[in-house]
Simulated assay, not measured.
Amino acid sequence: MNAEAARSAGTVPEDLEPETHAASRSAREPALRLLEAMLFAAGEPLDEATIAARLPEGSDVRALLAELSADYAPRGVNLVRVAGKWMLRTAPDLGFLLARDKPEPRRLSRAALETLAIIAYHQPVTRAEIEEIRGVSTNKGTLDVLLAAGWVRMRGRRRSPGRPVTYGTSETFLVHFGLDAIGDLPGLDELRGTGLIDARVSAGITVPLPSDDPALKDDEDPLEPEFDLSFSPEPDQGDDDER
């Protein structure tokens, strides 16, 4: 059966024919090249609206991103979606080869890691609420470290006595940890699977469904424009790790 007969019989979809596919890709080639150049030159992840504004009118942005992502999948650099945006990133299996060329980052203290996890899962959350969950006081410097890293942001003020500041995670947090959305954080079953939570933990223990909705909650007020965002000195490693 020749190609024409196969088409008549409906056994070969037109969009799978080599000639048609090649012609279609050729028509998209200028947009693909421009998209690739934009992503390569970008200093930060790009959202689809920004990409669409710079591509030729009528370009199917999602189709182009899907095609470019497939092209890059087997390469040393991958096209990935993080924080709802797109960026080029070193393939995960090659990261260890480049680690020697990167400066060794300062490790977060146990207190900072616990505080970051609580903010990620419980946001919006105040310092007092963080301390209640951790069971120990939280040094102000611990929060300042997370704020300085750009992983945590001040959202607003809680409508309660003292009007404490509420904290949440940032887009930088999602980018750093390779998350498309905060909902991609592991749930209880996944945490058990990694050994981070004892498999025998009480069945009543639950992991909250994280949400980083930028809109303020009903019990939050916006921060004052002149709010002081300066950071205090970083705490010593054991400032608030004592149990």
Rank of each mutant, 00 (worst) to 15 (best):
I133Y: 06
P105S: 01
P103G: 03
L97M: 09
R100K: 05
P124D: 06
G168H: 07
R100Y: 02
V136S: 14
E132H: 11
T115S: 15
P92M: 13
V165P: 09
L94F: 10
R107S: 13
K85M: 14
L108D: 10
T142C: 07
T142D: 09
V152Y: 02
F96W: 07
R134D: 06
A120V: 06
W151L: 08
G150D: 01
A128H: 10
R89A: 15
A99H: 04
F96N: 05
G168L: 02
R159H: 05
G95V: 12
T166V: 04
E131N: 07
R100M: 06
G84I: 14
L143V: 11
R107A: 15
A148V: 06
L116I: 11
A112T: 09
E114G: 14
A91Q: 09
P164Y: 11
E129L: 09
G84H: 12
R159D: 10
A91N: 13
L98A: 11
G84R: 13
L143D: 08
E131L: 04
K102G: 02
A112K: 05
G84K: 10
E114W: 08
T138G: 09
V125T: 15
L97A: 15
A112Q: 13
F96H: 13
K102W: 02
D101G: 09
P103S: 04
P103C: 01
R157S: 10
D93M: 10
S160Y: 03
V136Y: 04
L147D: 01
I119E: 06
P105L: 03
S137V: 02
R163Y: 10
P92N: 07
R155M: 11
T169W: 00
S109E: 10
R157I: 09
G168C: 12
G150I: 00
T169G: 08
R155V: 12
R158N: 06
L97V: 05
R110M: 03
A91C: 09
S170T: 15
R106F: 04
E114A: 12
I118G: 06
G135Q: 04
G95E: 15
D144C: 02
R153S: 08
L116G: 03
V152Q: 02
G156Y: 10
I119T: 13
